[in-house]
């Protein structure tokens, strides 16, 4: 049991938060707002899965927000021009993967620190998008919204898709050799090399993967609203990193799993609506998220110290 202590403690915190909500703000538990919340967070979940992979591999990618915006706008334009969604979907994933491959090549090929590389691509992509689009929105035809389905059905489809992806990736990370390689490289790249794994290739792969997932998340984003904003991905990187770290994925690599990241995301996603229901001003959201990140890393740090 102690092996999953970290994940269980997040689930525990989540349970406490939900019970507190049930007592103090039972209005929080209405199916329709909850479904809307889940739908809004579905793309975030998909990106968080990718971020968990990257962090387990002892890297970080803060360019996901910009990638998300770029892919959203590009695919939004294609979809608005009437391209079939089934064709746009692989394009979204492919474009994301290509952007991720750029990060991956710089990090794995040139051994540059991922934080700085992705910082640079984050700004370059965001400003590049602004340069081309000048902040223009993309108007989406009704046929695209909710895949042309009724809204409730569309929302369910999105949520289920995100959960299915989570399940597939979570299981893959545990039961596929490739998933285990990510852990091995994140734990000790040199030992992994001696065990016949190619750490640089795994690192590259992880960046491609988070790119592709971000592309898919962007796709899930454009079907949600009648307009695609070029700023839709602003701050996404922080949100997913927070979720992943709170969920028990160690920033030093090699430890954690997607289930924990999922719990962490749920906890953080509840902050904003919980604030509204508890009549605390929403402006506290960012501060509370920051505090939760710090709390999580401090707890990890203290725990590590006690063990050492």
């Amino acid at each position: 049991m102690s092996r999953y202590f970290r994940e269980l403690s997040v689930v525990g915190a989540l349970a406490v938060a939900l019970i507190a909500m049930a007592v103090f703000a039972p209005a929080f538990f209405q199916p329709q707002p909850l479904l809307s919340l889940a739908t809004r967070e579905a793309p975030t979940l998909v990106v968080a899965c990718g971020m968990a992979l990257v962090i387990i591999c002892r890297q970080i990618d803060i360019s996901v927000g910009s990638m998300f915006s770029v892919v959203s706008v590009c695919t939004g334009i294609l979809a608005a021009r009437g391209w079939p969604l089934l064709l746009v979907l692989p394009i979204a994933a492919g474009l994301g993967a290509a952007l991720g491959a750029l990060n991956g090549a710089l990090v794995a090929g040139l051994r540059l620190p991922s934080i700085v590389v992705t910082l640079a691509t984050m700004v370059a992509l965001r400003q590049g998008l602004n340069l081309v689009r000048q902040g223009e929105f993309v108007n989406m035809p009704d046929t695209v919204q909710w895949f042309g389905l009724p809204q409730a059905t569309g929302q369910w489809v999105l949520v289920i898709c995100a959960l299915a992806l989570l399940a597939a990736l979570g299981l893959g990370l545990r039961h596929l050799a490739a998933g285990r390689f990510v852990y091995a490289v994140g734990t000790d790249a040199e030992a992994a090399r001696l065990a016949g794994i190619r750490p640089q290739l795994v690192t590259f792969g992880v960046f491609v993967f988070i790119g592709a997932l971000t592309g898919l998340a962007a796709m899930m984003n454009i079907v949600q609203s009648p307009q695609v904003q070029p700023l839709s991905g602003m701050g996404l990187e922080l949100k997913v990193i927070a979720a992943v770290v709170v969920g028990g994925v160690a920033i030093s690599g090699g430890r954690g799993n997607l289930w924990g990241a999922f719990a962490g995301l749920l906890l953080l996603a509840c902050v904003a609506p919980a604030l509204t229901h508890l009549r605390i001003e929403a402006y506290w959201e960012k501060a509370i998220q920051g505090a939760i990140i710090l709390l999580a890393v401090v707890a990890d740090g203290l725990r590590e110290r006690r063990q050492a």
Partner: peptide, 18 residues
Amino acid sequence: ALFPDLSVAENIALRLER
């Protein structure tokens, strides 16, 4: 020279499985 974060079974498997 083992992987400290991984289980014993996995450490053995990473050396043996191809």
